[in-house]
């Protein structure tokens, strides 16, 4: 009995990370969302294998226009007779690219700025945070629209626009998280051992700040997917005929009364992806926060 019990205890992985994984796995909603996300990610990665880009996604066929969903066309076809399923899964590439790439870039910039501001404080903090505040005064979409208007619509400008617009939020978030870690005793203890500033920031502060930052990233990806789709919907992002969910939705609106399945598919794709990122983010927040643990 005793030996068995000990074995059980041994088999449970130790440590912070394993703890978080276990907590996350207990959350059924978040696990379901994660499964859907992985599915979306896989279809996006293998989109070329599943549906050929040139012949199915771009080639138009007027005879096949606006067909309802069937065995041959799972989601039906659009007003140019293109297979909607193919367009949706190819569109996932753009949305996921925006969500992940823009978040990664703005996170990197935000981490450097926020951690510097919080660690050094004083005038450096003031300069960085006042600039951040100024940029934050401009509404997110308005700022992104302005940048796109200057640079012209397209993949690159859209990426830059969204990244620039989301850096201030990250800077502020990282700063607040780092500030709460900087005041902890073990930072002072590290200083009393003669640890260098860079080692303190990367070795002691960031590992302790990473939890809330990751949660925020997941939420942010959802937001970015929606704003990228929003900008494309307004015609400021990816241009047709490239399959992008926002521009697909905008085109489909013309037929919404008679052929709603086109708009519903594009809209549902945006909604489900964003929702899944949010749910996973929520699940992570619950798993990381020790107060919400059992």
């Amino acid at each position: 009995m005793n030996r068995k019990k000990r074995k059980e205890i041994k088999s449970i992985p130790k440590g912070h990370f394993a703890d978080i994984c276990r907590n996350f796995a207990r959350n059924k909603t978040a696990m379901a969302a994660l499964a859907v996300l992985i599915l979306i990610l896989i279809t996006a990665l293998f989109a070329d294998v599943i549906v050929d880009y040139r012949t199915k996604v771009l080639a138009q066929d007027p005879r096949m226009r606006l067909l309802s969903p069937s065995a041959e066309h799972w989601f039906g076809t659009d007003n140019f007779g293109r297979d909607l399923f193919g367009r949706i899964i190819h569109g996932a590439r753009y949305s996921l690219f925006f969500g992940i790439a823009c978040t990664a870039i703005s996170l990197a910039v935000g981490c450097v700025l926020g951690a510097t501001a919080a660690y050094y404080g004083g005038i450096i903090d003031n300069i960085i945070m006042r600039i951040t505040d100024t940029v934050m005064c401009i509404p997110f979409l308005l700022l992104a629209l302005t940048i796109v208007a200057v640079g012209g619509p397209g993949l690159r400008t859209l990426t830059i626009a969204i990244t620039v617009a989301s850096v201030p939020g990250f800077t502020r978030m990282v700063r607040s998280v780092v500030l709460s870690v900087v005041s902890k005793d073990f930072i002072e203890a590290a200083k009393s051992c003669g640890t260098k500033d860079a080692a303190i920031i990367f070795g002691h502060i960031l590992p302790n700040a990473i939890g809330p930052v990751i949660v925020n990233c997941m939420m942010n990806i959802a937001g970015i997917i929606m704003s990228a789709a929003g900008l494309s919907y307004l015609g400021m992002g990816i241009q047709p005929p490239t399959p992008e969910w926002g521009s697909m939705l905008s085109e489909a609106m013309k037929y919404f009364r008679t052929y709603p399945h086109v708009a519903v598919c594009a809209g549902a794709a945006i909604m489900i992806t964003a929702l899944c990122f949010n749910l996973v983010g929520d699940g992570l927040a619950d798993a990381i926060d020790p107060k919400r643990r059992r």
Partner: peptide, 25 residues
């Protein structure tokens, strides 16, 4: 210069052993 002697020639222990260690290392 202080960093080079802190920890090697002078070192310090703190009041709260609960919070003076990095929880993730």
């Amino acid at each position: 210069q202080m960093r080079s002697i802190n920890g090697s020639r002078i070192s310090m222990i703190f009041q709260e052993p609960m919070t003076s260690l990095n929880p993730v290392v």
